[in-house]
Amino acid sequence: MSKHNVDQMPALDRIRRPEGGLTLGIELPLDNDWAPERETQRVREGRPFGIPDLTHYPDLIRQVDRSGFAAVWMRDVPVFDPRNFGDAGSVYDPFVNLGFLAGITENVALGTAAVVLPLRHPMMVAKAAASVDRLSGGRLILGVASGDRPVEYPLLGLDYESRGEAFRDAVDYLRDAWKDGGLPVGNGRIEPDLDLLPKPLQAQIPMVIAGQGRQSPEWIAANMQGRFVYPNGAEKLTTQAREWRSLRKALGLPAGAFISAFHLDLADNPNEQVTPRRFGARTGRKAFIDHLHTLEDAGIDHLALLLRPSRRPLGEVIDELARDVLPVLKPQSSPVKAAAE
């Protein structure tokens, strides 16, 4: 069991700052197999493209946790489809992985980006998520999605085209299942003599949506506590963040969290200029810090860094980010202050 307790900050407050500013997280898997030298090594080892080398995964996770990052994020890719999707994702089942991470971390929020809700019965998702929240001391952020890989649905005998409706139904089920007073049994009915245990440690496990989930912007603003959008340029992210907050404000709701990602190849020369790549860049530390300040000004709350393109050893990259990048972002509130707010 984590040393954290209910008096410490809610999971969403680990990735956002009441006074504004940006926090950084790490997106799994923790490998750098997209670097040219590592690709050569992969071929030599006979590993298929897209399957990460997770040899040093536990040690790197512990390093991230003690280094001041706000969160770690994992994907939900049930089936490796090398022909249509050459990336195996985070590999491990997300809820098994979350349980493992709850046991070896103490500080980071544990986020999914994102669990494909229509592929799982919502009762089992509700129980697994509440279990993780308890075991981690209230650090779960449940990112959810409707899925974008058509091959997965027929394998489970599910209809791909109706995934939007199934997604909405699952969200409603989760919220009902986490309440006291009975078990949801369908069609809005509650069975009072049954219950689902455990209940989450957080008053409400925050849900953030990755993509659109085949939902309207208005539904997303009303039902999600955050948005996790694909990596984009600062201008588009600014527009998306502004629209998200405007919709939340119109509904009389708190701002929530606006999250994106960045594929980072951090050069060892801090003065190296930016070389763009899909969803990110190769860049030296100084230009990267400038970009982060731009995102702070744009109203982005949290940026998940994918380090797979890194040419340097990941431990070295994590150290530099912790030592020279995190301290120049706007300072984080103390856990006591954040929880009080």
Score class of each variant (00 low, 15 high):
residue 269 N to A: 11
residue 303 L to Q: 00
residue 257 A to G: 02
residue 273 Q to T: 13
residue 196 L to K: 02
residue 234 A to F: 12
residue 234 A to Q: 11
residue 220 I to K: 09
residue 285 R to N: 01
residue 247 L to W: 07
residue 198 P to L: 08
residue 295 L to K: 01
residue 213 G to N: 04
residue 207 M to I: 11
residue 201 L to Q: 02
residue 206 P to L: 09
residue 204 Q to W: 06
residue 296 E to F: 04
residue 273 Q to G: 12
residue 234 A to R: 12
residue 209 I to F: 03
residue 274 V to N: 03
residue 274 V to A: 09
residue 256 G to H: 03
residue 241 A to H: 02
residue 230 Y to T: 15
residue 296 E to D: 02
residue 302 H to K: 02
residue 201 L to G: 02
residue 204 Q to Y: 08
residue 304 A to D: 01
residue 249 K to N: 10
residue 192 P to T: 11
residue 215 Q to M: 11
residue 239 T to G: 14
residue 230 Y to P: 14
residue 300 I to G: 01
residue 226 G to R: 03
residue 291 H to L: 14
residue 286 K to M: 12
residue 252 G to I: 10
residue 260 S to R: 07
residue 234 A to M: 10
residue 249 K to A: 15
residue 243 E to K: 10
residue 235 E to D: 14
residue 218 E to D: 15
residue 269 N to T: 08
residue 210 A to R: 06
residue 195 D to K: 08
residue 289 I to Y: 00
residue 221 A to V: 06
residue 270 P to T: 04
residue 198 P to C: 07
residue 295 L to A: 05
residue 290 D to S: 10
residue 295 L to C: 03
residue 239 T to H: 13
residue 240 Q to I: 13
residue 296 E to P: 04
residue 301 D to Y: 01
residue 222 A to K: 07
residue 251 L to V: 07
residue 252 G to D: 06
residue 240 Q to F: 14
residue 300 I to L: 09
residue 270 P to Y: 03
residue 255 A to Q: 10
residue 279 F to Y: 12
residue 265 D to W: 07
residue 221 A to W: 01
residue 260 S to G: 06
residue 237 L to R: 04
residue 193 D to G: 13
residue 221 A to G: 06
residue 216 S to R: 09
residue 263 H to E: 11
residue 220 I to V: 15
residue 293 H to A: 05
residue 240 Q to R: 14
residue 202 Q to K: 05
residue 288 F to T: 01
residue 247 L to Y: 09
residue 303 L to Y: 00
residue 244 W to L: 08
residue 297 D to R: 14
residue 255 A to S: 13
residue 289 I to K: 00
residue 279 F to G: 03
residue 301 D to N: 04
residue 297 D to V: 11
residue 285 R to C: 05
residue 238 T to Y: 05
residue 221 A to P: 05
residue 237 L to V: 06
residue 231 P to K: 06
residue 214 R to Y: 14
residue 216 S to T: 13
residue 271 N to M: 15
residue 226 G to H: 02
residue 297 D to M: 10
residue 269 N to K: 07
residue 270 P to V: 09
residue 270 P to D: 01
residue 215 Q to H: 08
residue 230 Y to E: 13
residue 257 A to S: 08
residue 272 E to S: 08
residue 196 L to C: 07
residue 289 I to R: 00
residue 263 H to A: 15
residue 217 P to A: 10
residue 251 L to H: 05
residue 235 E to M: 13
residue 242 R to C: 11
residue 243 E to N: 10
residue 216 S to H: 05
residue 293 H to N: 04
residue 249 K to G: 12
residue 242 R to D: 11
residue 250 A to R: 12
residue 222 A to P: 05
residue 267 A to S: 09
residue 226 G to P: 07
residue 271 N to G: 12
residue 192 P to S: 08
residue 291 H to E: 12
residue 299 G to W: 02
residue 291 H to A: 14
residue 206 P to H: 02
residue 240 Q to E: 13
residue 298 A to H: 00
residue 192 P to L: 09
residue 195 D to I: 11
residue 256 G to Q: 02
residue 302 H to R: 00
